[in-house]
Design a protein around this nucleic acid. Structure first.
Lengths: 238, 238
DNA sequence: CGCTGAGTTGAAAAGATTCAAATTCAGTGG
DNA sequence: CCACTGAATTTGAATCTTTTCAACTCAGCG
């Protein structure tokens, strides 16, 4: 599509993949299980934008924000990574996004040469990586779809719905969402200011759709209403 | 990253790849060269969203818009494809986007089973597809980056810059851009209304950055100013 | 107990959309 | 060849949404 090759100054977005329902293959998991553990403290970067992609990582625990920085200092959060997610994948030599821990986080680190070795030893792995990235792209398009032409309330609903589905997949309560990220991080992810995020959460609370126990703990009181916000972009009644 | 696995109702975005500077490998090109030709008229769909992905296509001539449709009928254009671009790639069985011709277009059609055969015969092809998709993802992130948090004028500048770079790569005049798509298509691509796109082009004209010979022919009079709009999102002076 | 950072809320301003009207253009049929 | 029709585009004005700037609250911490 239009997008890829036209970009001139596109730093290349290493592909940041999270394990889908099915995982990336035993081969990969096996290699990762024996990989070194690394701890990063809250606020620390697992890797920086533009640095050599020496390892790929699997998040054991914690949470990270994947971001790019604008020339003027603003940043765009491209996604969040949680336990079980793979990050740092990609065909390019350098990381095209940074990965900053949102809280204390532990990572398995698999050196890229070792990954390459595994791929050449096991051709099926390349296909798995292809599929994983295909998922990633699907996700990026979905996010684009749900952000670029939508109102703040729809964007925030989309965000909460995603987290809810994630909880569901992990056998956790889909109605209780613990946010490891700040309002600013959410805003940078959804293309909104932190004030708008805050206001919108308040609006959802007033409408009885969510309940804010603490500022970082969201309880979804009305999942149907939330889903409707995501599905139907116009003609939402009060 | 966060995006991929959380999505519940994510239709899957077959990966729509265009040939990067380097192509997708002789193997693939070879297969495509012998593939059947198909003509689609302006407005016709090469394939529809949700239908079985029976073939992948290479655009021989013409132009297409790749889009998804919202439940309320609105649509999101995810990209445009021009001659040389590959479309229809992806790991999923069904197309997750539709591809509508913007003008009379010819396509090479390679059946997916044949592609699979080629991949199994040539493991390197899987890696090439991986890299191609990695590019595609890079592009999607770049677009997201340049749309979600930016003003209309910056979005339109980004769009024009992309087309200019594309021309450059193809040995065409980077200052003269012929738009095969309507203002509405551009709006659906940039997350703006068609009126805003029109107004913004007028604004760029008034500022002397572009010159509109015809409504579909844009001449870039001041590339530096255009690039600045893309690079620096704030503090643009009049 | 005062700091500091995160979050909330208010009010004014900026930006985009919506609705509507006018204009241009391409293609058609007389 | 020209008027006519419909689609695409441009432009205007009112409205709506989000941002911006600022004030205020709250919790954790030295």
């Amino acid at each position: 599509m239009f997008s890829q090759s036209l970009t001139p100054n596109t730093t290349h977005p290493a592909v940041y993949v999270r394990t889908p329902g099915a995982d990336h293959g035993e081969e990969l998991d096996h290699g990762l299980a024996r990989a070194a553990l690394r701890k990063v403290t809250s606020g620390e970067n697992a890797f920086l934008e533009g640095t050599i992609r020496s390892h790929i990582f699997k998040v054991e625990s914690g949470a990270l924000a994947l971001y790019r920085t604008l020339s003027d200092g603003r940043r765009q959060v491209l996604g969040f990574a949680f336990d079980g997610d793979l990050i740092g994948l990609g065909a390019r030599k350098c990381h095209t996004v940074g990965a900053q821990a949102l809280k204390p986080t532990t990572l398995r680190c698999l050196p890229v040469p070792q990954l390459k070795q595994m791929v050449s030893a096991n051709p099926g792995l390349a296909t798995q990586l292809y599929e994983a990235i295909s998922e990633e792209l699907a996700d990026a398009q979905d996010r684009f779809f749900n952000v670029s032409q939508r109102r703040a309330i729809e964007r925030v609903a989309f965000f909460l719905q995603k987290l809810s589905h994630r909880n569901e997949k992990h056998g956790e309560d889909p109605r209780t969402i613990v946010l490891p990220m700040s309002r600013a991080d959410i805003g940078d992810y959804l293309g909104l200011t932190l004030e708008t995020v805050s206001r919108t959460l308040s609006e959802l609370r007033v409408k009885g759709i969510i309940c804010l126990k603490e500022s970082r703990v969201v309880h979804l009181r009305n999942l149907n209403a939330l889903n409707e916000l995501v599905d139907t972009p116009i003609d939402e009644d009060e």
